[in-house]
Design a protein around this nucleic acid. Structure first.
Length: 280
DNA sequence: TCTCAGGCACTAT
DNA sequence: ATAGTGCCTGAG
């Protein structure tokens, strides 16, 4: 099916290539990716987001996935508290935080530890190809992200064979807890940010950074401020006068400075720090 | 060959 | 609480 979502303040490229999701690929003038159980093609034409899916899809869910329900101008007003962030917003206007599948998001960021984005994408692709469901759209094919049960039952050697390395044990352990309902992801929805964060951190392979990514990218807990090495260096340089700060301190500072949408500030700052600062 | 990449667990203070 | 260290793997 094919449909159109009207959009404003939306930049597809920034949104899909900012590192929050690992399943999108640019193919000419459109992006192909997987949302849940659907292979999806999207392109942006002015104020129209053109969406094509291989399986029936709920328009509302797709709009929600792309973060289209958030009032971006208001968010900019909230987080625009200094020159750095305002400059970053100017450069990356239209970047929206996605609302991804919770399990896939958690698993993906467990895999993100001590590696780089191309390799994270590779791990997710091979895991999906091996244990996920085949999806087709037109001439394209891809695979859904495997449900927790599939990963829980896979043996550790298989997972290592897919290139997961030491992360294989972490993801399997977490998959087992989810599949056996010892850990219910959806219950986190009703907890406040720090309670939910603490719960997530009880899982193996989930520290503060990964927990924040999951809360930000799949729970709409926008006060989450993931601190990776880049953001850490940036915060130290811009706000701590070059002095080193523990990741938790940097995150705490950022939540106080940027408020309820600190996570949005993180996305903009991250890209500003990583790609564009020197050119501005 | 070597270093480094979007962390985390484990151990020792 | 806080600091140090090893970890699968692949790209540059």
């Amino acid at each position: 099916m094919k449909f159109i979502l009207p959009v404003s303040d939306f930049n597809l490229e920034h949104t899909l290539e900012c590192g929050q999701a690992f399943r999108w690929e640019k193919l000419g003038d459109f992006y192909a990716g997987v949302i849940g159980e659907a292979l999806v093609k999207v392109s942006l034409d002015g104020h129209e987001l053109v969406v094509e899916t291989g399986s029936p899809a709920d328009k509302k869910k797709i709009a929600d996935y792309f973060g289209l329900n958030e009032d971006l101008p208001n968010i900019y007003k909230e987080i625009g508290r200094d020159e750095y962030i305002r400059k970053a917003i100017k450069k990356y206007r239209g970047l929206r935080i996605l609302n991804q599948d919770r399990w896939e998001c958690l698993a993906s960021f467990i895999l993100s530890s001590y590696t780089n984005i191309p390799r994270i994408k590779k791990m997710i692709a091979s895991l999906s190809r091996r244990l996920g469901k085949r999806l087709v759209l037109g001439g394209m094919e891809s695979y859904s992200f495997p449900p927790a049960g599939r990963i829980a039952r896979a043996d550790i050697k298989t997972l290592r064979g897919l290139g997961l390395g030491f992360r294989a044990a972490y993801i399997k352990d977490t998959a087992q807890k989810i599949a056996s309902k010892k850990f219910d992801l959806d219950e986190l929805e009703d907890l406040n940010y720090s309670e939910a964060r603490e719960r997530l951190m009880s899982l193996k392979g989930v520290g503060g950074k990964v927990a924040d990514c999951v809360l930000l990218f799949s729970f709409k807990k926008y006060e989450a401020f993931p601190v990776d090495v880049w953001i850490k260096r940036g915060i130290e340089e811009l706000y701590f006068d070059g002095k080193t700060a523990a990741p938790e301190k940097a995150a705490e500072f950022a939540r106080e400075r940027f408020g309820a949408y600190a996570g949005y500030a993180q996305e903009y700052l991250y890209h500003y720090l990583r790609h564009e600062r020197e050119r501005s």
